[in-house]
């Protein structure tokens, strides 16, 4: 147990300098970028230079760079990213109100990725080197190659505009927009808590297109992992034994083989959050999804320094934490991992 404790401590300690580097990079990046946040706000109006100066002082932008940097670090340590110049609210508040939207999308994205990835992966492994295997392989490679924003738009065009099965965008229909009081801000969960059947259906309908879009981005990766892991275990002795006992192939594959193949698959899935967040930027943009990633895009356009810094650090911390948790869980589950 002491070994695990030490390992965890080591991993945590390694994460800190990484985050520090990220922080510094973001800080430097913003100071180098054209587009003064003060001017961005004052936007093309007739304002006196002295007002601009005043505002700059207020935001601490008149101080030398190293002082700004130290101030900024001190802020971040307290997990305070200042106020967003675009919305006027503290960045942390903005992020936490938006995080559930992104997480909900991500979780359902993973769900669909697992659904498509596992089924195609298992199928490909069972039919290894047959036509089905080749076709699935092409599908997996294809899913890496699809521009995710285009896929989202095509889905909108086909399923929302032409067939009218799903709404085009947003998380919930306008009719609920004012009666619906989100508690957890995970809308589906909120709808279930409120026991409003129509609302549940509405939220679900809004969720499906973006979640499938995001899920497809991960399908290829998961599918191939599944195929490889399944091939590995399908050759193993205990599977051969199960087979020789006369068990049905379906039972052998799903019960004996899949169960053992799942461990590495699940681990890898946890580590795909980075890719997922990248996909979320575009998915949230296309589907007007009010999440963290879309917030970043808007903040970039508005030259909202506090919001940009906050969001990037937040995403960094978030992903580092998830990786850390997965790593630790894996080391606990699989004793072969050396600490």
């Amino acid at each position: 147990m002491g070994g695990i404790g030490k390992y965890i401590l080591q991993r945590v300690l390694l994460t800190i300098p990484m985050l520090f580097i990220l922080l510094s990079a973001v800080f430097l990046m913003l100071r180098l970028m054209p587009g003064d946040p003060v001017l961005a706000m004052l936007g093309g109006r007739n304002v006196s230079p002295q007002l601009i100066e005043e505002r700059r002082k207020e935001w601490g932008l008149d101080k030398p760079l190293h002082v700004q940097y130290l101030d900024y670090l001190a802020q971040v340590v307290r997990f305070d990213f200042g106020r967003s110049s675009r919305t006027g609210k503290p960045v942390v508040v903005e992020l936490f109100t938006r995080l559930p939207a992104t997480l909900e999308l991500a979780i359902w994205g993973i769900f669909f990725a697992a659904l498509f990835g596992l089924t195609t992966g298992i199928w490909a492994a069972v039919r290894a080197d047959k036509t089905a295997d080749h076709a699935i392989r092409i599908f997996h490679i294809g899913s890496f190659a699809i521009p995710i924003f285009w896929l989202g738009l095509m889905f909108q065009m086909i399923f929302a505009v032409q067939l009218d099965w799903f709404p085009v965008a947003k998380r919930v229909s306008g009719i609920y927009a004012y009666t619906f009081q989100p508690i957890t801000r995970f809308y589906l969960l909120d709808a279930i808590i409120q026991r409003d059947w129509n609302l549940q259906l509405d939220v679900l309908k809004h969720l499906i297109l973006p979640a499938v879009t995001l899920g497809i981005a991960l399908t290829g990766f998961l599918g191939r992992m599944t195929r490889a892991a399944m091939l590995e275990v399908l050759d193993a002795d205990y599977v051969t034994t199960a087979r020789s006992k006369g068990l049905k192939e379906r039972v052998v594959v799903l019960k004996h083989a899949l169960r053992n193949a799942l461990i590495p698959i699940v681990t890898v899935m946890g580590l795909q959050f980075a890719i997922l967040m990248g996909g979320a930027v575009l998915t949230e943009t296309v589907f007007s999804w009010p999440g963290v990633a879309g917030f970043l895009v808007r903040s970039l356009d508005a030259r909202d320094w506090n919001a940009i810094q906050g969001t990037i650090v937040f995403i960094g911390v978030f992903i580092a934490t998830i990786n850390l948790i997965v790593d630790i869980l894996y080391s606990v589950i699989d004793p072969r991992v050396r600490y």
């Binding site: 970028m33 054209p34 587009g35 003064d36 001017l39 961005a40 093309g44 356009d301 508005a302 030259r303």
Partner: peptide, 21 residues
């Protein structure tokens, strides 16, 4: 083209010869 923030900054420095507003 420039994003709005950078656009305004450059504009206020007289950095455009011909621009849309």
């Amino acid at each position: 083209s420039l994003e709005w923030g950078a656009y305004v900054e450059r504009m206020s420095q007289g950095g455009f010869d011909m621009f849309l507003l």
